[in-house]
Write a protein that binds this DNA or RNA. Sequence first.
DNA 1: CGCAGGTGGAAAT
DNA 2: TCCACCTGCG
Length: 888
Amino acid sequence: MGIQGLLPLLKKIHSPVNVSKFEGCTVAIDAYCWLHKGAFACADKLALGEKTDVYVYYCMKYLEYMLKKNVKPIMVFDGCRLPSKKDVEKSRREKREIYRKKAAQMLREGKRAEARECLQRCIDISPEMALELMKTCRARGIDCIVAPYEADAQLAFLCKQGIAQAIITEDSDLLLFGSQRVIFKMDHFGNGVLIESERLNEVLGISEGYYTFDKFRYMCIMSGCDYLPSLPGIGLGKASKVFKLARQTDLKVLLKKFPSTYLKMSMSVPQEYIDNFIKADNTFLYQLVFNPLTRKLGPLNPYPPEINREELHYAGPYIPADKALQIALGNINIYTMQMFAHFDPDKYVPPKAAKKTSGSLHQLSIWNKLYRVRPKFVDKETEEATRPNLQGKEQNCASKLQRKSPRKRPVEESKDTNSDTELSGMYQSTSPLKEESANRCQPEDMSVLSPRRKRARLHLASSFPEESEESDPGMEAEDTSTPQKGSSEDRVNFMASLKEAVTVVSVNTLTSPDNASPKDKENCLQSPKRNKFAVLTGKRPRFDINAKKELKSRYFSSSSDKDTTKPCTPSSEEGSVQVNQQQNCKIKQNSPVTKTQLMSPESKVKLQSPVKKTKVGLQDKVKASPGSAFSWSKFKFTKQAEKQSPKVNSQFKQIVCNKPGTKNFIQKSLSSSELLLSSGDDVIIKDVSASQPKTSCHGNSSQDSQGVAACDHDLHSTCNSVCGSIDSFCLVDSQSSQDTKPSLPSLTSTYSDTKDSQSSQDTKQSLPSLTSTHSDNTEEESQISTTSVSSPALLRRSLGGVTKSACRVSGLSRGQKTKTNASKSKAPDMKQRSIKDLFSKFSHNRSVTQLSHSEKIVIKEEDEQAMTPSSDNKVLSTMGGVQRKLLT
DNA sequence: CGCAGGTGGAAAT
DNA sequence: TCCACCTGCG
């Protein structure tokens, strides 16, 4: 359950992350989250006790990705129930039973869709299911451990011990247990939201020096947690207010009078609440966990002297050592406490790792006697951010360079490199030999350089005319082939500015998080010709593996209006999102090419989603629809290719057209359309044959995208407006092309009718169009339309769904895609055509939820009935069997 | 006005 | 189960 509203409260410190950030590290996973999601897909079978392994493969999908990225996963399962949570568990079990009965009832009444819903609500993850997953994991060399009690505490323990460097979960409780790095909402492509505990004080607003992690934990407990419900009227907001203001160090005293002292509430706090508060706090602090290295039970944190462990039974009673080990190994069924498996860690021989790693001991199984904890995880970026001010210490910059090039450096190391001339000498590459070595070493240096130093170099780049960013704001410094020109006099001036730059940069860094992504470093490594001073321009979201593709909007213009859009100066330390949005507006206002009605991604989104327009910034795109293969985050734009438009255009065309079946569409589009924008990997095509923007298509078609799929031309042809995006995460790279499942969508597309865009510009206008469009469709449709009109709130919901609608519809195209590909050469599938027809009828401002997969399936199965309002139609055909079984 | 608490939709295939 | 949205209370 976690803490209600905690994650939204921590939004400020959410940083997008890809699990590959933890390459070479160990990441502990709350297995229950994935199991539960996976079980959702086969709820009916599970409810009936049928054998299914859908949930296992669902989990393995995540795990395979992690293995591919050389991240070592450890699956952590829930163990016995804590005494304090037994009531909660009991009520959950009762609820499940109620839903089970309800499901049976629904089926008897023939309401199969509702029945399915109920079945999904009564999903329970049984120890047998967990065991099934454990077996599969071990066969794949993935460590599993069952917590003696709660997985949360066990996960936190693994983190504290240094066994794991990060945790993947959906449960915000993890933060209370004191985990340093927690990844939430991770999808199949490893993208999630990272929250670091050391940044918690940024959101709580507790002034520096007064913040302690204990306060954060108290605050969460006060707002209501699994172990203690909150006092009525107290939520996160009030709780945080209390601990923001409180200077009282005695928790008991504070609890006794916090409502009157800090909240101006007249409420007496019962002693029982205070006692339970302490117990809850102790449960977070001293819950029993299993140490796989010593194979012993112990508290999450060492007991302080004043704590009597006998009194802590609520945090998990001790279990005999042997039994505890068997539980941890997953050999004991935690419901029945009977042995139901016989995994022996000492005889366990994991399969050979597909990717031979360094052979470090931390890569071994945690059950292996030789296993050793990995050296402390150092997040380069975080470390840099917390490093002392380097103001005026340019000497450090040089010494770092020396360290990374042992062959050349010893000579220089002996020198005193304090003087400007000597420093500048280091950057001179007059002899071919030196130049070569410079080219060889610099990218490497760059990759290990701190972001601060990188930025220092960037700053230098802009202050050094020849390599200045000013001359080409759109340039990503992708392949500046002449990095080192200029006279030595220039160099001296240059080095003079180095001092200044380092000073400025180090000051700036303190006030801003580092935004360079690992990918940037990777790029640095890969491009030997890169201008070492011009790498990494602008700001990027923290830790974003795809930062390269996401940074952009301000450069979102054709090269012709480049001059009107000033690049963001390196010193502007705002988050990239805000900057981008601002820049976007600038483009829209200033752009001289109004004739072409240049569309920024934002403006396009706004058109599609009039109501939610304030919500559809890049930020929201990133978090949209986390579990879905499609999300707005896939709409990524780069600034790098302003210069390369023609090249990229042809690239795009080539890639798209290479896919059989899409040639016609693209050619058609291109003939009637004007290529509006091409920004590196992305292309937007605007149809100039209509007054409104009609067709736009973005595709991530970078060099590394070999497994590019194409737009579904059949569906495209039915729509006036098309936004397509090749999902960058779905792109199959050369290495993974074999093991990536072909069913994964490589391309997702959104469709919206032109009328959509028109009407959505004016919400009032869209109102009548909504009703008229739908009135002659299914009864259900018109119902929605009319209610939408009658109730502003509902209307807003309905319209607000447009953005999502696009996603949904993309799901539809996704579903069709495999089929389409399979039968490319055949005449258009009739079923598909019926979907097209349906879609073209419904496409106007339709609420997302209406065009669901279930509907799609109905059309496939029973075309006629699909148009009748009976809800019974919205049922998977498999439910027939379910019904029979449940009824018997 | 701000907050807590309730509601409804989505999740997976 | 989580999230976004809405409503009603203080």
